[in-house]
Simulated scan of single mutants.
Amino acid sequence: MRQLAKFSITVREEDFVLHLADDSGETIEFAASPEQLDAVIDALDELLSENEEDLFEVEDEGETYQKPLG
C-alpha cells in the first residue's frame, strides 16, 4: 500500500482538484465537486473525533502523553 506523503487542493471554476502524492513522488489528481469535498471533510472529522484519544495527545492526571503518528 502506498504511503501518503503530501497533498494539495487547487480551485477550478466549478470544482476542486485534489493532488495526492506518495512517498515515491508519484502524484494522482482527482476532480471533486464542493459537495464531494464536504463529504470527505465530514468523514475525516468524524473518524478523527471518534479516535482522537488513540491518535493524539491524551492528558492523564496532569501529565501529557503523545502517541507517534508514523
Rank of each mutant, 00 (worst) to 15 (best):
M1D: 07
M1C: 05
R2P: 14
R2V: 11
R2Q: 09
L4S: 07
L4G: 09
A5R: 11
A5V: 00
A5N: 09
K6Q: 04
K6R: 15
F7I: 03
F7C: 03
F7M: 06
T10N: 07
E13Q: 09
E13V: 01
E14V: 01
E14W: 09
E14T: 10
D15L: 04
F16P: 02
V17H: 06
L18W: 13
L18D: 05
H19W: 07
H19T: 04
H19A: 04
L20C: 01
A21E: 15
A21P: 02
A21F: 02
D22Y: 03
D23H: 15
D23S: 11
S24Q: 09
S24L: 09
G25P: 06
G25I: 06
E26P: 01
E26L: 10
I28F: 06
I28P: 01
E29T: 13
E29I: 00
E29W: 05
E29K: 09
F30E: 06
F30G: 00
A31W: 12
A31M: 02
A32N: 00
A32G: 00
S33D: 03
P34G: 05
P34L: 01
Q36N: 12
Q36D: 08
L37G: 05
D38E: 15
D38G: 00
A39Y: 01
A39K: 10
V40G: 01
D42H: 08
D42L: 05
A43V: 05
A43Y: 07
L44T: 12
L44F: 15
L44K: 07
D45E: 09
D45R: 10
D45K: 13
E46K: 14
E46D: 14
E46M: 08
E46F: 07
L47F: 15
L48P: 02
S49Q: 07
S49G: 08
S49K: 09
E50S: 06
E50K: 15
E50R: 15
E53T: 04
E53M: 04
E53K: 13
E53F: 06
D54P: 01
D54H: 12
L55T: 02
F56M: 07
E57Y: 10
E57P: 08
V58W: 08
V58I: 03
V58G: 00
V58P: 03
D60V: 10
E61K: 08
E61S: 04
E61L: 03
G62H: 07
G62F: 09
G62E: 00
E63L: 05
E63D: 05
E63G: 00
T64G: 03
T64F: 15
Y65N: 03
Y65H: 11
Y65Q: 05
K67Q: 15
K67V: 14
P68F: 03
P68V: 00
L69P: 08
L69S: 12
G70N: 13
G70Y: 15
G70Q: 15
